[in-house]
């Protein structure tokens, strides 16, 4: 894939107040590139869910977005606790989020399933005690 643009963001851990800043930045950048709104929406949802996961579970991380001619690749990397059972984590409704997170309208076990739903390819690599990397590819029609 020939990359046209690479965007990188630091996602702060802690509270959810700042979650969405990276996805908002990507959205604006993709709009300027004139990409199809449905592609932008899918990228934004994947990014935002990923950001929320990193904030809630991993005390932040980094988000990298490679915009190519044919597809957009999102790579989310954190040095959090890792995911013990990825298959279980991918199940809709499975969650380990705290009640305080659920009160905010998140943490219903939809993050990873949403990311899978709105991307064309998704890979989750996780090592306990080391961290997690989620890679998602969204094709540009």
């Amino acid at each position: 894939m020939d990359d046209c643009i690479t965007l990188t963001y630091a996602v702060e851990g802690g509270d959810l107040t700042h979650a969405g800043e990276a996805s908002s930045g990507v959205k604006q950048a993709l709009r300027k590139l004139g990409l199809d709104p449905s592609v932008i929406r899918r990228v934004s949802v994947c990014m935002y869910e990923g950001e929320i996961n990193m904030v809630i579970h991993a005390n932040g991380g980094t988000a990298r977005v490679d915009v190519g001619l044919d597809d957009i690749t999102i790579t989310l990397t954190d040095t959090g606790p890792g995911i013990p059972d990825i298959e279980k984590a991918m199940q809709a409704g499975f969650t380990t989020a705290a009640d305080s997170v659920r009160d905010l309208g998140f943490g219903a076990g939809m993050g990873l399933p949403n990311m899978k739903k709105y991307s064309d390819e998704m890979k989750v690599e996780s090592v306990l005690g080391v961290g997690t990397t989620v890679t998602m590819v969204i094709r540009i029609e």
Partner: peptide, 14 residues
Amino acid sequence: MSNVNVAAVAALAD
């Protein structure tokens, strides 16, 4: 819902 993340979701969904 009335927390700050509502703004992020509204912006994302336009």
